[in-house]
């Protein structure tokens, strides 16, 4: 069953054509990896899905994106859309406040929370992001004092706290060491049970490890999308094979 449907997506920045006629589906409760070389438009797709692209000046977006069969551009309340579709950025961006405040930042935008509710939410979010055991003693210390890997999992927990249906990861491990990366990937696999996950990565091995399906993007065009096994063992396009075997990119 599909969660998100992208139809004929075209994006241009100041005349530069970043995405050309991209169409594909994102199935529910799966991890879809989007791979491809730098500047091939991977992140742009994410910014279209949560409409963050509207915050950038001089961008033209054409085509439709459906979330649960509903065109996201007909959702009047863009904030609501962004709460349903969370994003974790490439570099961890903890806000300069305590761990707890970071987690509660999103939920508090919408309503006041009782102390008990807040505590529960913090604990659950941190557990889901596989960070709870490491920080449960110091929830009131600054988030800036965490290590890079911990900060990234904090960002995941912060995204989870607003209870999104879809979580998008924009090269979430590009600045992390292998051990931290493994922890983030572990969290992702856990999250798949209740969420739809989109993972943009330029690390093909990561896509092979965690992705159920994989899409290959090159210079703004979707070359191929299929099950991860197929893409990495028997791709139907030559470009895909050259990329996944490391001939370019």
């Amino acid at each position: 069953m599909k969660k998100i449907e992208i139809k004929n997506l075209n994006v241009s920045f100041d005349g530069f054509h970043a995405l050309r006629n991209v169409s594909f589906d994102i199935p529910r409760n799966e991890i879809l990896s989007i791979i491809g070389p730098a500047n091939s438009g991977k992140s742009t797709i994410l910014f279209c899905i949560n409409r963050m692209i509207e915050r950038i000046p001089n961008v033209k977006v054409e085509g439709d994106i459906l979330l649960d069969d509903r065109n996201i551009h007909t959702i009047k309340d863009v904030e609501e859309l962004r709460r349903r579709i969370g994003i974790v950025y490439a570099t961890p961006i903890p806000l300069p406040m305590t761990i707890k405040e970071n987690i509660l930042f999103g939920p508090k935008l919408k309503k006041r929370l009782t102390a008990a509710k807040a505590g529960e939410l913090v604990e659950n979010s941190l557990k889901a992001a596989v960070l709870w055991d490491e920080v449960k003693e110091r929830l009131d210390s600054s988030a800036l004092r965490l290590s890079g890997g911990q900060q990234q999992r904090l960002c995941i927990a912060r995204t989870l706290a607003v209870k999104p249906e879809v979580i998008m990861f924009d090269e979430p491990c590009s600045g992390l060491d292998p051990i931290s990366t493994a922890k983030v990937e572990e969290a992702m696999k856990e999250l798949k049970k209740d969420h739809t996950i989109v993972l943009v990565t330029n690390n093909t091995k990561q896509a092979a490890r965690v992705g159920d399906r994989t899409a290959f993007l090159l210079m703004g065009e979707l070359i191929e999308i299929d099950s991860t096994d197929k893409i990495f063992t028997a791709p139907s396009k030559q470009k895909t094979e050259e990329y996944v075997t490391g001939k370019f990119g």
């Binding site: 915050r55 950025y89 999103g106």
Partner: peptide, 23 residues
């Protein structure tokens, strides 16, 4: 103030005014 802070707040569903006042 780093541009990132605004992106984070907006991605968590903050309105424009909330982005300004909170982040």
């Amino acid at each position: 103030v780093p541009k990132n802070y605004r992106d984070v707040a907006a991605s968590l569903g903050a309105t424009r005014w909330q982005v300004v006042t909170r982040s």
